[in-house]
Amino acid sequence: MAPAQDLTPSTLELNRASRAELESLPGLGPALAAQLLATREDAPFADWQDLAQRVRGMGPRLRRRLSDAGLRVNGRALVSPGEPDAPLTPASVPRS
C-alpha cells in the first residue's frame, strides 16, 4: 500500500522569500516578484492589508491564490480559520 500524499501546500514567508521562491508561486511572475522584493526593502510587510496597499497588482484573486499556495505574511494566511473575510484595500495608483 502506497503512503498517503500530503496535499497541504508548504508555506513560504513573504518577508524572507527569495526571488526564485516567489516566482515559483502560481500567478506570480518575474515583474511582480521584483516589485515585491523592492517594496519589501523599504520595510517588511506587516500583514495582507499592508501588502495590498503597497503593491499594485495584488488583487483579491491573486492574494487568495497565493495564500492558498502557501504564501504567508508574518506567518499568517490571507484569512485564518475562524476569522471573518475582511475586504482589503488595494494599492493606490501612484502619484505623478
Rank of each mutant, 00 (worst) to 15 (best):
L28E: 11
A91D: 02
S24F: 02
L25N: 09
A43I: 08
P94E: 10
N15D: 11
L14T: 03
L78N: 00
R56C: 08
D68G: 07
L78W: 04
R95V: 09
P60Q: 09
A2W: 13
N15G: 06
Q53E: 15
D42C: 08
R54V: 08
P3V: 13
L37T: 11
L37A: 10
R61Q: 10
L37D: 12
E13V: 06
R76Q: 14
M58F: 12
V73Q: 01
A46L: 15
R19P: 00
P3K: 14
F45D: 07
L32D: 01
W48G: 01
L12V: 12
A20G: 04
P44E: 14
P26A: 03
A17K: 03
A2Q: 13
L37R: 08
L28D: 08
A38L: 14
T89C: 02
L12S: 08
M1Y: 04
P90R: 01
R19Y: 07
L14W: 07
A4H: 11
L22G: 05
L32Q: 06
G75V: 08
S18L: 11
L88M: 02
L22S: 06
A86E: 15
L71V: 05
R65C: 01
P84R: 14
P81S: 02
D6N: 15
T89I: 07
L28M: 08
P44W: 15
D42T: 14
N74Y: 00
R63F: 00
D47Q: 09
T11H: 09
Q35E: 13
L62E: 01
A86T: 13
L66P: 00
E23F: 03
L51F: 05
R54Y: 05
P84A: 12
A43C: 12
D85V: 14
S18H: 06
R19I: 01
A2T: 13
P81N: 03
L7H: 13
L51V: 13
L14C: 06
R76V: 00
G59V: 03
V93W: 03
A20C: 01
V73M: 02
T89A: 06
P84Y: 10
R56F: 01
A77Q: 04
N15R: 04
N74C: 13
D6A: 12
R63S: 02
S24K: 10
R64M: 04
R61M: 05
A69M: 11
Q5D: 11
P3S: 13
V55L: 13
R76D: 03
A2F: 12
S10K: 14
P90Y: 01
Q53C: 14
S80V: 09
R64W: 04
R63N: 00
V73Y: 04
R54W: 03
P30L: 07
V93S: 07
R19S: 14
L25E: 07
T89S: 05
A4W: 11
S24C: 04
S92H: 12
L32Y: 10
A33H: 05
L22P: 10
G59F: 03
A34E: 15
P90L: 01
L78S: 00
